[in-house]
Design a protein around this nucleic acid. Structure first.
Length: 277
DNA sequence: CAGTTCGCCTGGGGGC
DNA sequence: TGCCCCCAGGCGAACT
């Protein structure tokens, strides 16, 4: 379940492996994965294009080539592997053959991942088009503050967990890190967002930054299936305070699992509370 | 119109 | 051992 730290780990790995390399041919074995153009157009556009840089916006990877840009969202289980062998394994749905003979494979067991193509290298212009219009500021964005977050949520009474998962409001957090942020802020994840003062909203952003920064430094979190393109497991699962945990590191009580905003949610009902308004 | 549920997918685990 | 059912969850669409 790649969230921002896992996508950033993948981005860094791919940058090391791919910059300066050129695509000779592309084959897509699961067409619905390509979203905004036909599979034929996608494959044709990528031919003879060289990887110039790889960026990221929220959980989207942005591949900047000579005169096109393509996006890749890994959703739950998308991965990239670079190998010399051309043989495709069961869940490899896209094969990018490089001019040096190596192949880049896109592997996605559950086929949830997506790709988009744009006929420009103007990334600012692409961010003004779907799907990136749906991606709000990252917690690292200096323009995201307690005040501006308050403006974005306006009169909403959604649970704080639902707001933190909403990529249009704040991007990069997924189920694991949202549980960690709520724990660090000592907030019941079910707290209606309108119960939070501006300083509390600022704390949500500060803790989001802290958790994501630490997770990037650890190479992401490996729960279930995440492995980077260099086959390296993340290490942040060893630093999780509440997600998938049994005992609260603060009070020693039992961590409970409930459903909030449609997601499995880990929390400590003693240490995480709804603030008095 | 805001908030919730569904559907997309597959593999893994629990129950019997 | 094997089958069935449920669960995992990012995100857009459909629904209330």
């Amino acid at each position: 379940m790649p969230e921002l730290p896992e996508v950033e780990t993948v981005r860094r790995g791919l940058e090391e492996l791919l910059i300066g390399k050129t695509i000779a041919a592309v084959t897509v074995y699961y067409p619905p994965l390509v979203k905004n153009v036909t599979v034929e157009a996608f494959c044709e556009a990528l031919k003879q294009q060289t990887f110039r840089s790889i960026a990221r916006h929220g959980k989207y990877l942005i591949f900047i080539m000579d005169n096109i840009v393509w996006l890749s969202h890994l959703r739950m289980e998308g991965r990239y592997h670079l190998r010399a062998l051309k043989e495709r394994t069961k869940h490899e749905h896209v094969v990018f053959t490089l001019t040096d003979g190596e192949c880049l494979f896109y592997h996605d067991t559950r086929k949830f991942g997506t790709m988009h193509l744009f006929y420009t290298v103007d990334v600012a212009a692409i961010k003004a088009l779907p799907p990136l219009t749906q991606v709000g500021p990252e917690p690292f964005d200096p323009l995201l503050t307690g005040e501006t977050l308050k403006e974005r949520i306006r009169t909403s009474k959604r649970p704080v967990k639902g707001v933190l998962l909403d990529q249009t409001i704040i991007s990069g957090l997924g189920n694991i890190y949202v549980d960690e942020v709520c724990f660090r802020c000592k907030l019941d994840p079910q707290t209606p967002i309108d119960r939070l003062s501006v300083p509390m909203l600022s704390d949500l952003i500060a803790q989001s930054r802290a958790v994501l920064t630490a997770a990037i430094a650890a190479g992401g979190t490996t729960i279930r299936t995440f492995v980077s393109s260099k086959q390296i497991h993340g290490r942040f699962q060893n630093s999780l305070l509440v997600h998938q945990q049994k005992l609260c590191p603060n009070c020693g009580g039992l961590i409970e699992k409930i459903r909030v905003a449609g997601r499995g949610t880990f929390w400590c009902r003693v240490c995480q509370t709804i603030p008095e308004k």
